[in-house]
C-alpha cells in the first residue's frame, strides 16, 4: 500500500500556531485507527521538532508519510543549523532565549524527547544552512 503523504508549512516565531501541524497529524492517525501509544509517540516527537523549528529556525516544512507499519516525519528548515549535536542531544542543554523560556520552552528536552519517542532519528545539519530531521516511529 502506498503511504499517505501530507505536507505542512511551519511559520517561524509564531508561537500562537506552534504545534498545530502535530495536532493535525494526531487527528489523522486517530481517524485511521492507529493505537494510542503510537499516536502519542508521533505527537510528542513531531511537536518537539515543530517547536524547535519555530524557536530556532524561523520555520520550515514538514512532510509526513503514514504507512500501516510506520510513520515517517521529515522536517526541513533553513535555520542556523546545530553546531554541536552531542550537546544538543543532552537533556537540559538549551540555547533558547529568555523570552522563549518564559513561555515554558527551553527545557533542553526537545531533541532528547524526539530520540526517546522515535524508533529512528536521522539528523543532517549544516551550520548556516539548515537542519533536516527524519523521524520514524514504527507501529
Amino acid at each position: 500500500m502506498e503511504p499517505m503523504k501530507y505536507h505542512f508549512e511551519v511559520k517561524g516565531d509564531d508561537f500562537s500556531v506552534a504545534g498545530e501541524n502535530s495536532s493535525k497529524v494526531k487527528k489523522i492517525l486517530r481517524q485511521l485507527g492507529f493505537d494510542p501509544e503510537t499516536i502519542r509517540r508521533v505527537a510528542i516527537a513531531m511537536y518537539e521538532a515543530e517547536i524547535n523549528m519555530v524557536i530556532h529556525a524561523e520555520g520550515g516544512y514538514i512532510d509526513a508519510e503514514i504507512s500501516p507499519d510506520k510513520v515517517k516525519i521529515v522536517l526541513q528548515d533553513k535555520g542556523p543549523g546545530i553546531p554541536d549535536i552531542e550537546k544538543a542531544m543532552q537533556e537540559g542543554y538549551s540555547t533558547a532565549t529568555n523570552s522563549v523560556r518564559e513561555l515554558g520552552f527551553g527545557a533542553g528536552m526537545g531533541l532528547p524527547n524526539i530520540k526517546k519517542y522515535s524508533d529512528d532519528l536521522v539528523i543532517n545539519t549544516v551550520v548556516g544552512e539548515g537542519t533536516r530531521l527524519e523521524i520514524t516511529v514504527n507501529v
Partner: peptide, 28 residues
C-alpha cells in the same frame, strides 16, 4: 511548567497543574 516535560509526562486523562497561561498549554 516546562512544556517539554509536561509533554512527555502528562498521560491521557491526567489533571495537569501549571502556572503557564500561554496558548501552548492548549497544544500540550
Amino acid at each position: 511548567d516546562l512544556l517539554s516535560l509536561a509533554m512527555s509526562r502528562v498521560q491521557a486523562d491526567n489533571v495537569w497543574i501549571t502556572i503557564q497561561t500561554n496558548i501552548n498549554i492548549a497544544a500540550v
